[in-house]
Design a protein around this nucleic acid. Structure first.
Length: 317
DNA sequence: TGCCAGGTCATGG
DNA sequence: CCATGACATGGC
């Protein structure tokens, strides 16, 4: 489980108070880079706006920004008294240094941690996370965001936004997507992922499996349950368990993490897939998933830099 | 223009 | 087990 900070971070102030609630709330934070975290490929619905990012969390439109390193500021459309949904989503009560301390002290992780201070894991809604990553296969992040945007605009419900602000949509319920036709889903540019999403939505709508139960089940059992869904293999199962269910030992291996592992840990020869999987399960410890997020972001940045500076559109090795 | 993208699945050594 | 190709679609 994640380490907990010793002191509470909630820091209530009264910037607005109409009905006993507030439209703006500040949170004291340490070791938190909001922009890096929201844009690190875990979540797909955040867009830059007014020096911060706007998105939808827990069925609410929200604007987040970090006016200084020790402060997060949240703005919502309707007064709010209980902000626990947001502290949970942002995992504000985690201690990042305590989690990093559980890692093995190897050069790649030391370098990634140094290069990406304040990168955190989020705790997202399991269904939105599952559906999003079902759509992620062999797609670039910009295209994943586009597919999800189309789905939300077509099948989501309008959410309250500030005056004169364009509409925002909820992420579609599993029941809604289960009732959609495959051709309508393909119209959202889902391609071959359309039947995977539709059939998985049907299963989730009848609680087979019940996503809410995954958080309290052992990691291997969660993997088995999720991988029974069409279009869900080991990688997507681990994404859901890590990004939405609090299983910090889950370790999704995608093409980027595979590249990082080969390049940083096995530069001489590439292990077989089974050996590599065994390595990820034993080497990184109880907070392996956070290590995965650092390796993912680190290798993506260094590869992007290499591409830009060498001025070739081609891929390395 | 063609290649590749936060994979999964079915098939054949 | 392991390797390989199909699967839709769009950006660079």
């Amino acid at each position: 489980m994640a380490a907990r900070a010793s002191s509470p971070v909630d820091n209530p102030r009264p910037p607005r108070d109409h009905a006993g609630g507030m439209l703006i709330q500040r949170f004291a934070v340490r070791d938190y880079d909001l922009g890096l975290t929201l844009c690190s490929g875990q979540a797909f619905r955040w867009t830059p706006q007014d020096g911060g990012w706007e998105g939808v969390v827990h069925g609410r439109w929200i604007h987040l920004r970090q006016p200084d390193p020790l402060t997060l500021e949240a703005r919502v459309a309707q007064t709010e008294t209980d902000w626990s949904w947001l502290t949970r989503y942002l995992r504000l009560n985690d201690s990042l240094p305590a989690m990093i301390e559980t890692w093995p002290h190897d050069p790649p992780l030391l370098e990634a941690a140094r290069a990406l201070p304040g990168l955190r894991l989020l705790r997202q809604d399991p269904w939105e996370c599952l559906a999003s990553f079902i759509l992620s296969s062999t797609k670039q992040i910009v295209q994943i965001r586009q597919m999800i945007g189309l789905l939300c605009a077509r099948y989501g419900t309008a959410l309250p936004t500030p005056p004169d602000h364009p509409p925002a949509w909820s992420f579609p319920q599993p029941e809604t997507l289960a009732a959609a036709s495959e051709s309508d889903l393909r119209a959202c540019r889902l391609g071959f992922r359309a039947p995977y999403l539709q059939q998985s939505a049907r299963r989730i709508a009848r609680r087979a499996p019940d996503l809410a139960g995954l958080a309290t089940q052992p990691l291997p059992e969660g993997r088995r349950r999720l991988q029974e869904l069409p279009g869900v293999g080991r990688k997507i199962a681990d994404c859901v368990l890590l990004f939405a269910c609090g299983h910090d030992a889950a370790f999704p291996v995608d093409v980027w993490v595979l590249r990082a592992l080969r390049q940083l840990y096995f530069p001489r020869r590439a292990p077989t897939p089974a050996r590599l999987l065994a390595f990820t399960e034993t080497h990184f410890g109880p907070c392996a998933g956070l290590a995965q997020q650092y390796l993912f972001e680190y290798i993506r940045r260094t590869t992007a830099l290499a591409r830009t500076s060498s001025n070739h559109g081609r891929h390395p090795s």
